[in-house]
Amino acid sequence: MKDQLSALIDGEYDISDSEHLITSAKSGGEMKNCWAHYHLIGDAMRGDGVMSNDFSRRVMAALDAEPTVLAPNATTVSLQANQQSDYKKITKQSTKLWSVAASVAAVMFVGVMMFQQQFSQTEQLAPVEIAQSIPTEYLQAHQAAAPSSAAYYIQNASYAESKK
């Protein structure tokens, strides 16, 4: 089963047939540790070795603490109980379960990205679209310095409010 989990993480396992792996990885214990370790090993092999064991533990802990709002969560509990006896039910849920796995993966991915960014500060970062963040300080400075301004102090007020 560990081999299957490893293959899944490496993208060499049939996703549609992997729900039991995800379920077991989610259920904690040895498989959960494996999930974490395999990811860590994978990262290290790909050269993303800056991620500490502590980091992945924190991510997993945060994931555990996160209240899952996905609808299938309630059935997941019963799925675990009936895992052996009722296999059909599980396959029905497979797509939903996979979405849980995907979101875990996405969180991991974002986490890794953020972590990497902290270490690549020595180089100039790639430009991002300005639309992602309003340059409030520039807007204020412009309105304060413009020779004619409709009401910069009025706008300023609301920017200051939103900045708090």
């Binding site: 500060q121 020595t122 100039q124 970062l125 790639a126 430009p127 991002v128 679209e129 300005i130 639309a131 963040s133 340059p135 520039y138 400075a141 412009h142 310095a145 413009a146 020779p147 004619s148």
Partner: peptide
């Protein structure tokens, strides 16, 4: 600051420092 008498435009120039995300676009 540039002005045509009533409309005005500000041009800001800031050196890109370590860790700063340069911005592009409109």
């Amino acid at each position: 600051i540039f002005s045509d008498g009533i409309a005005s435009v500000s041009l800001f120039i800031e050196p890109i420092t370590k860790g700063m995300h340069p911005k592009m676009g409109h």
